[in-house]
Design a binder for these strands. Structure first.
Lengths: 184, 184
DNA sequence: CGAGACATATTCCTAGTAGGAATATATCTA
DNA sequence: TAGATATATTCCTACTAGGAATATGTCTCG
């Protein structure tokens, strides 16, 4: 027995959130633009969905009338509806808040530290941190983008959190160096 | 054209790592025990795979002869093979190290802060932190379990990292309280 | 001692998700 | 004007999540 009107996925709500964020824009957003926005802002807190996934979720949101797209000859441009905004509100504070899920290949390798030399671990971590530098710059961009005061009040905390999270990797490397130096 | 001998998933290597960790135990581990171990140690750094997934991955590892199970009448008990250990070594430091992926429903809701009152956000965060208290205790357990000095040297950093990661949520709440107090 | 609860052990099924390939058009650039 | 890049969307397939189903063993309490 498949649940009719089954609950939307968290990813669907995340996209709905992006559309609410953009609700002053009368043009709306295409799926493609949503993907870009998701890659830019969302991916630090929720997996950035694949393109195909975005269109799937948009279809579901559309069926539930949480988003609408004015019929046009060009690409479909979605806007959040009143109903959608209400629904997001409801979900935000009345839905089950699940546990964070992390897939961290670097941490995983650190956990297997006994299988490696300190040099190997150190090398891997430093390579990873190089990659992170670019990400960190992006994250600053996200913070700059969040201009509205209400948004800033809370989202900046999240951004700080994200930075703290990544900074702690820098701390690990620092700690690692220290430990390496202190080794006999 | 399906790739024959296709590369194992990260989850498979994670399980292989758990078996290596346990390689002094001549009994080996059952799939069930691996699941328990994964829930205990692994889930903070990699999604803890579902039971069914564990058995799927074990089958693949077995086909590749990275693990072996002595035939017996009881439940299958797996041990890592020489080949498996070598393979894990190779993967650890010669495979592609992907980017961390986070699914954080709390951070997601914080990002949508403009849709909520400070009280709602604060309430949600505090509820979440209550749940985390238990987890944090678990994590201490993981650290206690890692008795071997080589392991401790690196895994303790990971544990610290995990703790720092979760502690930063406490900081967010503290920051939130501060901001709430400072509000007109 | 027997009943029910809980732990162990594994398989099966289904919906969901990832993510690349394919397709098409528009624009930009040299 | 050809090739590259960006926009826009769909399609396909393999993988993953995760609950249900199924057994058997063990523990506990009246």
């Amino acid at each position: 027995m498949s649940m009719v009107n089954s609950a939307l996925s968290t990813t669907a709500y995340a996209l709905l959130g992006l559309l609410v964020f953009d609700r002053e824009n009368p043009e709306g957003m295409t799926g493609y633009e949503l993907k870009q926005r998701a890659d830019f802002t969302l991916r630090y807190y929720w997996v950035s969905p694949a393109m195909s996934q975005i269109y799937t979720e948009l279809r579901k949101l559309s069926e539930a009338e949480f988003v609408e797209s004015a019929p046009s000859d060009g690409p479909a441009r979605y806007r959040v509806t009143e109903l959608g905004e209400e629904q997001l509100q409801t979900w935000l504070f009345h839905g089950e808040v699940g546990f964070p899920i992390l897939k961290h290949p670097v941490a995983l390798r650190l956990l297997m530290g006994r299988l490696s030399t300190p040099e190997q671990l150190g090398g891997m971590l430093e390579g990873h941190l190089d990659d992170l530098a670019a990400r960190r710059a992006d994250l600053q961009g996200v913070r700059d983008m969040l201009g509205d005061e209400h948004q800033v009040r809370y989202a900046a905390m999240v951004a700080d959190w994200g930075l703290a999270y990544y900074d702690s990797e820098a701390q690990i490397v620092a700690g690692l160096r220290e430990r390496l130096d202190g080794m006999d």
